[in-house]
Structure formats: C-alpha cells, structure tokens
Design a protein around this nucleic acid. Sequence first.
DNA 1: CATTATTCTAGAATATTATTCTAGTCAAGC
DNA 2: GCTTGACTAGAATAATATTCTAGAATAATG
Lengths: 200, 200
Amino acid sequence: MTRQKSILRTKNTREKILDAALRSFNEHGIEATTIEMIREDSGASVGSVYHHFGNKENIGATLYLEAVRDYQQGLQGLLAAAENAEAGVKAITRSYIDWVGANPEQARFILYSRRYLARSGLMAEAERETQRFLAAIANWFKPLMASGKIKRLPKECYSSLLLGSAHDYARLWLSGRSKKPIGKFRDIFAEAAWSALKPD
Amino acid sequence: MTRQKSILRTKNTREKILDAALRSFNEHGIEATTIEMIREDSGASVGSVYHHFGNKENIGATLYLEAVRDYQQGLQGLLAAAENAEAGVKAITRSYIDWVGANPEQARFILYSRRYLARSGLMAEAERETQRFLAAIANWFKPLMASGKIKRLPKECYSSLLLGSAHDYARLWLSGRSKKPIGKFRDIFAEAAWSALKPD
DNA sequence: CATTATTCTAGAATATTATTCTAGTCAAGC
DNA sequence: GCTTGACTAGAATAATATTCTAGAATAATG
C-alpha cells in the first residue's frame, strides 16, 4: 500500500509534467515553452522535471514515443481482419483518421514537432518501432501487389498514396486552418486512397 | 554608384546570414541553431544579425516568406494555360513536385519548420499571401466543380486530395527516409491526384 | 566638397533560460 | 528505527538570446 502510494506519487508527477508539456508545446511550440512554464503548470519542481526527463527534448521525445505507440497499437489486428485489398486499404485510412479525431493533441504534437526532436535515444527507439510497424504493413501488402490486387508501383510511393491525403487534411484541421472535424471526411479519404491504389 | 555599392554590402551580409541560417536550421533545427553559429558561418557580427532581422524567429520567417513567394510565383500562369480540369490538376501537382525537386533546402525548411514560426508580422504577411494564392486556385476550380468536370466534394477536402500525396512524399524524401528523388514520381502523383478528383 | 543624417557593423554588457548541483524528504524492506 | 534508493526542492551555474553603445561606411544635402 505504501509502495502503491510511492508509485502514484511518481506517476502523478511524471504524468502531470507530460500533460503540462503537451499543452504548452502545442500552444506555444517546443522552443517557446520554458521549463519554468512546465514547472508552474504541472506543479512540479525544476529538480523533478530533470529527474524524470533529463532535458527538455526528452520530454518531447517521450510524448512522441507514447503517442506513436498508442496509434500503432490501435492498428494492430485491423489488417489481419481485412478480407481483401480494398478493405485493408480503407481500414488503414479510417483507423488513422479515427485516431487523429480521438487524440487531436497527441496527433498535433506528432505532426508538428517531429522535426524538432533530434536523435536522442528515445527517438531512435521510436524510429525502430516505426520501422517494425511499417515492415508489418509492407508484409501485408506484398502478396496483394504480387497478385495484382493492388496497382503495381515503386514501393516508395505506397505510403504516400495510402495516407498522404488524410495526413494532409489532419494537418489542416489540427492547425486550425480547417474547422470541419476530420471524422466527417473519413470515407472520402478512404475512397481516395483506394482509387489511387486499385488496379486500373 | 556609391549607392549601388552600399546596397551590395547590405545585400551580401543579409544574404549571407540567410544562407547560413537556412543551412543550419535544416541541419540542426531552428532551436538548436545558435546566433553564434549563424554569426560564424556567415561572417557577420551579432550586431549585424540583429540589425537585419531583430531576432532569431524573424530570420526563419524571412526564409519562409521568400520560399513561399518563390513557389507561388512559379505556379502563376500555369492554371491560366490549362485547357481543362485534368490538365489543370496535373499541372498543379507537377509544378509542386518540380519546385520541391529544384529547391530542396527551401522545401525542407517550409515543410519542417512552419510550426516553429509563430505569428510575427512577417508570418502574418505570408499567411495573407497564401490566402490570396489559394483563393486564386479555388476560383479556377469553381466553374469546373459547378459543371461536374471535377468530382463534387466538401470544399475543405480539395487541397488535400490534390497535393496531399505529393506533399507526403516530399516530406519522406526531404527527411532522408526515402532516397528516390521526388521527380521520378512526378506522373504517379499527378495521376493519383486526378484519380481522386475526376468525376466517377 | 564638406557636412550631416542614416544605415550598417562590431563586440561588450545584460537578460533569459536550460541545466547541474547540493541538500534534503519520503517510502520500502530489513 | 535504520538504511537505501527514488524522488523533490530550489539555489547555483552555464549557455544563449537580446540589447546597448560606439563607431565606420554610405547616402543626402547645400
């Protein structure tokens, strides 16, 4: 019980710092966010912040890693369940849109702050996980490409044709330049992905 | 003549600062770039840097504004020349790809650093110019949408369906995660845009 | 030309902010 | 109830952005 308490104390501080950082990073950008702002908003001390994360960039990298994991987990199994190429392509697109719609703050952070986050150990880890994830998707696609169920194209192009439009609209929406919630256009982007990838 | 000389001095210092900043911003990111690095790389003094730009963010905003203007200028006239919907859609896509291929450093900066640049006066200016530009494109599309030469969709979706895939691949390429020059896929992305926008 | 105003450059001084350091507090297990 | 390790606090330091002051170069004026 006492142990539980300790973990809670830790967890709470750590989570509060992450929450405060995400809010502030998204509102002001990472650079404009000072440790002092995070400290004040989270109620933690400078010492705590540095104890948990080491430096400002690691706070960002942690947010990035946790968000990416959450999204990738949501997609697991969807492909296994897909009956055919069209269903799979549309499932990937819809899953992406649904995740963005449900987690706009995390999505905003991932889309707009990746460039800032240099190659810390945490980012390398995120990179590795993403590679594994993309490889799994590529694997699912491979037989469909071979059998002509999906248009044959240079392999570099698939991910952009699949998610590029949804990606782009997500940026538009998350930046506030478009007001219409991304969920409204779920099927439009799924159709567009399929029309770019279906065989002629 | 003396006047000419003076402008050159100014221009050179100013341009050298911008060149050094673009290099360093793209290599290390804006935050990790110090004024000292820009000063050393450009050969200017701290005083000069601040005389010309006022603060670090304004250097970024200037790079952003100049790059966006350059791209937008390139697209002017292309639409006026387009014979029909398909030609127009493909011309826009190709023009974007060509510009990115020809100006990778500028493109990288625009795509990866927009979020960092807050609403300084310069960014507001860039925003206004972009609005005018998008309005001109929307205007070109309007009669085609009305007459059914282009698929009828919610207006928020068009830009993402038109350039989203190319956009996405540009990021991939510019970040170094894909090695194949974007120009190779010029027609693939033009086709994809058209297949998303052509009437059923 | 000489004079004056303006723009530009230089680098030292200052202010802001990230990070480190030291001294503790707190809970867990013995 | 002692010891250990994880955690917190906030002061001290270091790194960096920005401002300031002086002066050099250039342009404008009579």
